[in-house]
């Protein structure tokens, strides 16, 4: 085993450990400290975190910058909302169908988008997402048009073995969102650490070489697109449950911008990074709006400072520091190979 793979496997295990520790703390926190603020903002952070994490499968892992990710978020939200409001389909089945619907939409749109690269790819994803938006606001009988799916989403109590849980309770909903977030994180972790995940990173670094090795870069990009769409659908479905409806701004392009900024703030080289970014952005917005209606001014100033001084996502920055410290500790092989070791002498 070479140094770099050893290091990578450490980082790999570390991310799961940190993720589970954070999740355990988050699960216990409202039991010790039952604050309405936490129960209100917590699910938003988790939902947007899953959304940003889904985008990062494309952005960070495959190097595809989508400006239209809201389409799949919205698809998940509307699918769940329509199923729960207008049919007898249960919660679990609705969630599954929401994910499937979003993934299917991503397959159709992605089929066209992955032909293009760089900013052209981004603009095409935006174009399709806005077309989806137009359909949503025009298909009034199905989607409620401009108004969205109003009237609330009926959520029946869920039976968990001997217990019956009323999801209308904020605490129960918080814990449900948290467990689904953890499940999504672990599934995504398995995916990005698989052979497929390695190939995605190879496509990001050099698509031509992947082609030379006999894999289809376009096919891999499409598969990343579909996977990201599916996870975004889960996030959208949870958001619909949280707000009790689905609204056109779930599909609007500003909703596509939010996860991009979360990924940039949190860091694009891990799965936890986007979750951290969501916590920072949603948390900051929630805190600032308590004090002033001019939250944009404060948040904007913070973002300006962030881009000018840090210029790298929080977790990426942290991981880099941690890695170089681990490498500097006695007994550990130096990072950066022979050249730097020689330099040190």
């Amino acid at each position: 085993m070479t140094h770099s793979t050893a290091l990578r496997s450490i980082v790999r295990r570390t991310e799961v450990t940190w993720g589970l520790v954070a999740a355990a703390v988050a699960a216990v926190l409202p039991l010790i400290y039952p604050s309405t603020f936490l129960l209100n903002v917590g699910p938003q952070i988790l939902v947007m975190g899953v959304f940003a994490m889904s985008l990062n499968l494309m952005l960070g892992y495959t190097g595809m910058v989508s400006f239209g990710h809201a389409a799949y978020f919205g698809m998940g939200a509307y699918t769940l909302g329509i199923l729960m409001q207008k049919t007898a389909v249960g919660l679990a089945a609705s969630l599954v169908l929401a994910v499937a619907g979003a993934a299917l939409l991503a397959l159709v749109i992605g089929f066209f988008c992955v032909r293009l690269g760089t900013i052209y790819f981004s603009m095409l994803t935006l174009a399709f997402a806005q077309i989806v938006y137009t359909v949503v606001i025009r298909a009034t009988p199905l989607t409620g048009g401009d108004q969205g799916l109003i009237g609330g989403i009926p959520v029946p109590p869920v039976r968990l073995g001997p217990w019956t849980v009323a999801l209308r309770s904020p605490l129960a909903f918080y814990e449900l969102t948290l467990s689904l977030t953890v499940a999504a994180f672990l599934l995504a972790k398995v995916l990005v650490d698989s052979r497929w995940g390695l190939l995605l990173r190879a496509v990001r670094d050099n698509g031509d070489r992947v082609e030379f090795l006999g894999a289809s870069a376009r096919g891999l990009r499409l598969s990343a697109f579909v996977a990201a769409g599916g996870f975004a659908g889960l996030a959208g479905a949870l958001m619909a449950l949280y707000v009790g409806g689905a609204y056109p701004d779930f599909v609007y392009w500003t909703k596509s911008a939010e996860p991009i900024f979360m990924v940039l703030i949190g860091g694009m080289h891990t799965l936890l990074g986007p979750l951290v970014g969501a916590a920072v952005l949603v948390g900051l917005t929630a805190v600032i709006t308590q004090y002033t209606s001019l939250w944009g001014l404060v948040l904007g100033a913070i973002l300006v400072a962030f881009t000018l001084f840090l210029k790298v996502g929080l977790l990426d920055f942290g991981a880099e520091r941690w890695r170089s410290r681990a490498a500097a500790a006695p007994g550990n092989p130096p990072v950066g190979g022979v050249a730097r070791a020689r330099e040190a002498k």
Binding site: A257, I260, F261, L264, I265, G296, L297, L299, G300, A301, L303, V304, F306, T307, L308
Partner: peptide, 11 residues
């Protein structure tokens, strides 16, 4: 660069 100029919009 997008993040920075987006921050300008907010401000």
């Amino acid at each position: 660069q997008l993040l920075l100029t987006y921050a300008f919009i907010l401000v």
